[in-house]
């Protein structure tokens, strides 16, 4: 795991992806991006490890981002998992709670709150992380 904090951003809207990338790079994160669920799953399955994964829900299909969530949560060390969605529903919120998502933001996202939550989440001890 690199010493710089790293995040994977997943969103099918390029403008959101680029904006969030700029914002988190200013916060000294190393940012990787994926423009679809399939691309994100490939990145996660290729053995890349992140301190956090931030994903949209509705991409190729409705609520497909939950597949990214499920894959991210299985990783060790477990990254912090954040959902940013413009279409929260009882079903996807319930599913997110059951999966153990760490933070859920509804679009339009309050950036200061998201950054603050992410900084808090990545600084906590993580499941499966080795202690030095």
């Amino acid at each position: 795991m690199p010493s710089q904090r790293s995040i994977l951003l997943v969103d099918d809207e390029r403008s959101i992806l680029e904006t969030l990338k700029i914002i988190f790079e200013r916060e000294h994160y190393h940012v990787s991006t994926a423009a679809s669920c399939a691309e994100a799953l490939n990145i996660l399955q290729d053995g890349h490890r992140f301190h956090a994964v931030i994903t949209d829900l509705n991409m190729e299909e409705e609520d497909i981002g939950l597949k990214v969530v499920a894959a991210a949560i299985k990783l060790r060390p477990r990254p912090a998992v954040v959902i940013c969605t413009g279409y929260p529903s009882l079903e996807n919120s319930r599913h997110a709670l059951d999966l153990g998502v760490d933070y859920m933001a509804h679009k339009p996202v309050e950036l200061t709150e998201l950054i603050s939550a992410l900084n808090r989440l990545v600084s906590r001890p993580r499941l499966g992380a080795s202690r030095k």
Binding site: P88, L90, S93, R94, V101, Y103, M104, H106
Partner: peptide, 12 residues
């Protein structure tokens, strides 16, 4: 009954 905001509060 939990609505989307209650579930969001639970997660966060």
């Amino acid at each position: 009954d939990p609505d989307i905001f209650i579930l969001q509060a639970a997660i966060n």
